[in-house]
Design a protein around this nucleic acid. Structure first.
Lengths: 317, 317
DNA sequence: CTGTTAGCGCGTTCAT
DNA sequence: ATGAACGCGCTAACAG
């Protein structure tokens, strides 16, 4: 009876005002649980991220929460701890909680469980990467383009031996970045040296360990392209421990701009992902699927252009 | 019927196994919405923070989510945008969603709405600060102690003119830190110069503007104590723009350790808050109040000791 | 020990 | 134009 629109259908002025005053006076709010049970929609969205403490995900979470709330939806926050079986459990948990839809930043390379899950009728939108051979809409950064932009800059500054510390092998975000790295080298007539492509996860430790190894090579790289903010953080730690300076001794470019990027020992050149746009569009696409506003045979596959922010971490050779 | 414990009360082996297999086979999960309506508890917790994109809150959110999930609870994430009327709306929203409890990192200085809200029976636990004259349990950093530790270090390094860029005036976290700053000066027989206590919010801009002004003084401070991570970020920007170096030209200590603190131009000495412990204890206290496990006349008022991490941003005079 | 039923609060439908 | 009754899926209470 007090659903806020029922009144408009019948009496406009009198009843509405009385009801509203009474509601305010008695501090009445409709029970969303009962409403959810009855309507078979809860106006909730599940958000699963591998690590909410990571600035990249927390700033998208912020935008997702705000944009969802504007539309009456609340967010169940779930941290999959970068663990694929946790991610699986979380999908089931959210299903049991009858969320209307899920925004998922997947973990690892396996995706069978996601494809399987998406058959159950709860709409899923994927962010940050995409799955091969899937019917699930996604919205990510154009990682290939971002890597090309970064590499073009490094090469334009005169570097010829450029290492790449990559993240988790096999996922689209990583593969696209590596492909951009290789293609840009090739386009500039520099042979790809596979021994300069190292690393296997997006964590800080990978950056640290691999940077140390790279610096010990006989023919060390003059520049490093780090494929995540944590990798560059680790690489900086290694470089700093070795007594070397950026960019004098070695240059560094990182994927993912951070609030502190401009304030580092050497303000860092980064590939900035348009997190806000990814987040807003993910919410809007999900809401369209929830409300059925759009032909669901259309699978959105969206890549947002990143932006190269040139600071002072690449030396001119 | 399928609540997972009913079986244990009756048949142990046979029925349980049959049910479990059937449940797995048909991929059945009990509907948590219906359950919530029936039991009048939803096993959900509302988390309200002023800015989830802030590392300080996002890492606590991570721990809160994980710790809650261990106990079967899911988290509604709400970002109050540092806006007190949004915070108010969110409290009501969470009440309408029938959360079993709320963890709140409050915004601003006003707290009447929180006291008012807490009378409605939904348990609230406050983190990051405390409210004056309230019956709501809280768990925060011992901000007074943290400020004393930082100031003792600065003074021990020989500084005598030390500025303090503070955050939002009037809230406990800020007042306790300022009190620690003043008391430590007094204990070391240095008169407090109120013109060296500047700033009025925790943002980056405050740090930037106030640091610029401080450096222009006739008798500029040799050290700055920044009362938040964003303030120190802004101060660093100002110092860097002025062509000055930390710690050679000016020393800096900041509240809130960050992942990048060790990797800055000058690795920064910080007061690290024990975020994990605050988060875990907040969840546990809230759960105790939800389940009624503890005498609710006991109002927990907990302060966790912070840790001074000494790096290289303070010069020996 | 097992099967049946009432009712949580809402929105919808059907009957006035 | 309004009011009464039903049912969403679950669990607790009760009857058999």
């Amino acid at each position: 009876m007090l659903n806020g629109k029922g009144e408009q259908f019948r009496i406009s002025t009198q009843t509405s005002e009385i009801i509203l005053k009474a509601a305010a006076e008695y501090n009445y709010f409709p029970n969303r649980i009962a409403r959810g049970l009855r309507l078979e929609k809860t106006e909730t969205i599940g958000l699963i991220v591998p690590d909410i403490a990571n600035q990249f995900f927390s700033s998208m979470a912020k935008t997702i929460e705000i944009e969802s709330r504007k539309n009456g939806y609340s967010i169940f926050l779930c941290d999959s701890l970068d663990n694929i079986s946790t991610e699986k459990e979380l999908l089931n948990l959210l299903a049991a909680r009858k969320v209307d839809g899920i925004i998922l930043a997947p973990v690892g390379t396996g995706s069978d469980h996601i494809n399987e899950f998406s058959k159950n009728g709860i709409p899923v939108v994927i962010i940050d990467r995409y799955l091969p051979d899937t019917k699930i809409p996604y919205i990510t950064t154009d990682n290939y383009l971002g890597a090309c932009q970064a590499m073009e800059h490094i090469l334009a500054m005169g570097h010829r031996v450029v290492a790449c510390i990559q993240g988790l092998n096999g996922i689209s975000a990583n593969e696209d970045r590596v492909r951009g790295y290789k293609d840009t080298l090739n386009n500039n007539s520099i042979a790809v040296d596979n021994s300069l492509i190292v690393g296997d996860d997006f964590g800080e430790e990978t950056g640290y360990v691999q940077a140390k190894l790279l610096m010990k090579r006989n023919n060390p790289p003059t520049a490093i392209f780090a494929l995540s903010n944590l990798i560059s953080l680790g690489a900086m730690r290694a470089i700093s421990e070795s007594g070397l300076k950026i960019p004098d001794d070695i240059s560094l470019v990182s994927f993912d701009d951070q609030p502190y990027s401009a304030l580092l020992a050497s303000p860092m050149t980064t590939v900035e992902q348009e997190k806000d746009e990814i987040a807003v569009r993910a919410v809007n696409i999900l809401l369209e699927r929830i409300t059925g506003a759009k032909d669901e045979r259309v699978i959105e596959k969206i890549m947002i252009k990143p932006k190269l922010i040139i600071r002072k971490s690449v030396r001119e050779m």
